[in-house]
Structures are given as structure tokens and as C-alpha cells.
Write a protein that binds this DNA or RNA. Structure first.
Lengths: 194, 194
DNA sequence: ATTATCTATAGATCTATAGATAATGC
DNA sequence: ATTATCTATAGATCTATAGATAATGC
């Protein structure tokens, strides 16, 4: 029942990918190690050869989810000739992202839960958070580096909060109102940030 | 072991208050019905005379947490002679609020989890969310009602997202940077919102 | 008589481990 | 020989219910 080193590395990648998706969909407590192993087609006993605990997987999966977001942002920026920050904001605050938390932003999907995780997890998330801010700083329009960073932080906060508010409502009209109001306000806010 | 109607009503209030606090502190899955009843000084078996399920309590506690926030906002607004929206924003994005999720904003503490709750819970939360938006609309500076509402939504999104980002970081410097950048940007954003 | 609370427990679920199995890789 | 996976299970925990108890309120 042993597999080759390559296959084992592949399995580990599949476990992290499945976890990154399922955690965003159901929350860290909403899915078990056995469920995740089952998705990959393995039994849960084998999990502990890959990770020392579920917490370890939570950290790895969180970092992976943020990497997926950065990769998507990179793709959008490369495809956009005009205002790149605006393109990112519109993609983030889209109905498509609203409906698909499992492939979207980790912070919007699991914000409150992340803050209650172990140090290991929070350090992984902080690393990812810095990458998100740095990436947005690179497309912000400010004249100085400090200003671009400030614009990035402010835009990210609006994006995370806007999606969070849109997702908790059971009123689809209010949901659309929030998404479009916040998306419309970010460019103004960015320009006005001094 | 039966108690009077008044005492029972009091117990129910204590259960909801304890739940509203503990849920914000540990998450909906982080505390059991038995734990909450224990905090109040009752045994867990008695719980089901007050609520038909834990989900019922989650809905009641969520609404109560939002009511606490509105009450606090009302107090701040009554005490503030100057810019009332700015006072609310500074209180929301304070280190004090950052350190005390258990008495703070439900959405910032449990945002992602709320979106995965039952219809009962989401409807209660939507009701509370409308109250938050309406309250902020009342102190926003816009000239028309529609504009004030837009400013309220945009400000609330920045507040929720700013606190979420500040709480997930393990870097205290980055935490302070986020809180002050977002708090500083909201007044600009509100003025610029058309 | 009614019922709020308590005691006890059924039934389900979850993390982590122990030991067996069989394929890899020296 | 080593080890990735599987089978089985220990130990803990959680929601919800059943039946007993004792105080309320008609």
C-alpha cells in the first residue's frame, strides 16, 4: 500500500488543495480530516504521515488559498489594459465571487475564524496578508510608495468588508446594493487618500 | 426545581447574553450548549425548555449582539458634539475593540461563519444589518437620503473589513497600521462618495 | 396539575493513534 | 528495511431526549 515519493508528494498537494477549498466552503470546523482524505480518495488514517495535526493542514491550506487569490489577481492585471486596481475591485466584489466562497478570498470566507486560530496558522496567514497588500500596492495609483501602500490597505479592507456584508444578508437586493456601492466607492476613496 | 415565570424569563435573558458573548469570543462551534448553561449556572438538560435547538439560540444571540452594538453607538453619538460618524469610526477601529471581540461587532467577529448559518439565523442577522445601516445613515453627512445610505454602507464595509484584517494578523505593527489607515480614510471616502 | 430544572444517556462525530499490509527503494 | 496507506479503535465531545424531581400557580 506504499506509494512512490512522487505519488506521495502529489497526494499531499491534493490534500492541501481539497482542504483549501472545503475549509472556505464550510469553515475549519465544518469539515473533518476524514472528509478531506475521502475527497482525495484516501483513508483518514494515512493523513498523519503527511501532517502532524489538523492545525498543520489549516496553516498549509490557508497559505495555499491566498496563493490562489494572488495568482488570480496576477491573471486579471495581465489581461487589463486600463485601471488595474479597478478591475481587481470589480472582480472581487462580483456576484460570481459572492456565490463561490470556496474558490475565493480566504479572509472574506473565514475572517473571524482565522483570528481565533493557533499561532502557526496566524503566522501563515500574516505572510499571505502581506503578499495581498504588496500586490495591491503595485497597482495602486499613488505617487509615493507609502501612499500606494495606504491605498492598498484601505482598498483591501473595503473589499473584505463589502464581501462579508454581502454574504451575510438573506436579502438579494441588499446584497447587490452593497456590492455595487462599495465597488463604486473604492476608486473615489483611493483617489482621496492622502 | 421549577422556578417562577419571572425567574425563567430572567434565565432566558442570561442564556442569550452569555451566548452572545461566548459566540463572539469562540465562534458558534467553539462553545457548547452545556458550556453556555454552565456559565449561567444551570445544567444543559434544561436548555431545551427555552429553545428548540442550538440554532434557535444562535439566531437570538446574534440579534442581541447587534442590539448591543447599536446601543453602544447611540451612547457615543449622544456624547459627541462634533463629527458623529467620525467618532463611531474611531471607536470601531480602536485597539480596544480589536482586543475585545466578545463585546464588539458581531459581523467582524463572526462574518464568515454567519454566511454559512441556517435561514433562521441569516434572517435575524439581516434584520440587525439593516438596523446598523439605518443608524449609520442617520449620522452620515450626505445631502440626500440615498447618498447618506450609500455613505453608511461604504463606511460599514470599511469598518468590518478593517477590523477583520487587523484581527487576523500576528504582527502588531501591521495591525496598528491597518486600524489607523482605514480609520483615516473613511472620512475622505464618505466625502468623496457621489 | 403543570412545568423548569436536573440526572443520565443515546447516538453521532471527530482527532489522533496502534498495528497490519504491501509496495518502494536501497 | 523502510514507509505510505489501510483497518480498527480509543478517548473525547456534542446535540438532543427521556424520565425523575420539586417548586409554581391555578
Amino acid at each position: 500500500m506504499k506509494v512512490s515519493k512522487e505519488t506521495m508528494a502529489e497526494h499531499q498537494g491534493q490534500i492541501v488543495a481539497a482542504a483549501a477549498k472545503s475549509f472556505r466552503e464550510r469553515g475549519f470546523d465544518g469539515i473533518s480530516v476524514a472528509d478531506i482524505m475521502n475527497e482525495v480518495g484516501l483513508t483518514h488514517g494515512g493523513f498523519y504521515r503527511h501532517f502532524s495535526s489538523k492545525d498543520d493542514l489549516v496553516a498549509a491550506a490557508s497559505l495555499r488559498a491566498i496563493s490562489e487569490t494572488i495568482a488570480k489577481w496576477r491573471r486579471i492585471v495581465d489581461e487589463t489594459p486600463g485601471d488595474r486596481l479597478e478591475a481587481l475591485v470589480n472582480s472581487y466584489l462580483s456576484l460570481r465571487h459572492h456565490d463561490r466562497p470556496e474558490t475565493g478570498c480566504l479572509v472574506a470566507a473565514l475572517g473571524g475564524e482565522l483570528s481565533r486560530q493557533s499561532c502557526t496558522v496566524k503566522e501563515a496567514v500574516t505572510k499571505g496578508q502581506r503578499e495581498l497588500i504588496d500586490f495591491l500596492s503595485g497597482v495602486a495609483p499613488g505617487k509615493t510608495k507609502a501612499l500606494r501602500r495606504k491605498q492598498a490597505i484601505v482598498a483591501l479592507a473595503s473589499m473584505v468588508g463589502g464581501m462579508t456584508l454581502a454574504r451575510i444578508t438573506s436579502d438579494s437586493e441588499l446584497c447587490l446594493e452593497i456590492l455595487s456601492d462599495v465597488a463604486g466607492a473604492i476608486p473615489n476613496s483611493v483617489r482621496a487618500t492622502v
